[in-house]
């Protein structure tokens, strides 16, 4: 990466962090699930669970860890119900690629580095929607990145 690209990338990370940390207490995991999880950051769960609540949620919906208050996943389901996005929580999410930590999740979504669109990324999705993508063989493994 050249110095200009590097500066550009760092600025992107800086603004992403500023924006998402302020609004969602983002932990910069690099593979964002906000829109899948009712705009609640699942990495705020003390166990960083990405597929649903653990077995320790109290009967009143509190987290088993003191000081957290409402279980993060309880909140995700509550908010998802409000936003009518419950179906998005029902898909199995792959294990997090920890090498993405600290990188820009927006760029990862664009390039597919976070495994989105079977690793082909948003740029592929947009191209294919615009009909710019030639139908090359797309049998991706669908495996975690």
């Amino acid at each position: 990466m050249g110095p200009v690209a590097r500066f550009g990338y760092k600025s992107l990370v800086y603004f992403e962090k500023l924006f998402k940390q302020t609004l969602f207490d983002c932990r910069m995991c690099g593979a964002c699930h906000l829109s899948k999880n009712g705009m609640v950051c699942c990495m705020n769960c003390p166990k960083g669970l990405r597929n649903g609540p653990c077995g320790g949620t109290g009967i009143d919906g509190t987290c088993e860890v003191e000081g957290i208050g409402e279980c993060v996943w309880h909140k995700i389901y509550r908010r998802s119900a409000l936003l009518h996005t419950l179906a998005r929580t029902e898909k199995v999410k792959p294990a997090l690629d920890w090498s993405l930590q600290g990188t820009s999740s927006y760029l990862n979504l664009w390039t597919g580095r976070d495994g989105s669109f079977e690793g082909r990324g948003m740029r592929w999705k947009i191209k294919s929607l615009l009909g710019l993508e030639r139908s090359k063989s797309t049998d991706s493994t669908g495996a975690a990145p």
Partner: peptide, 17 residues
């Protein structure tokens, strides 16, 4: 599986997963 922790819907989804 924890049958008692809320919300019930999440418990079913988790088992499905």
């Amino acid at each position: 599986a924890n049958p008692f922790a809320p919300p019930l819907h999440a418990r079913v989804v988790r088992l499905q997963k």
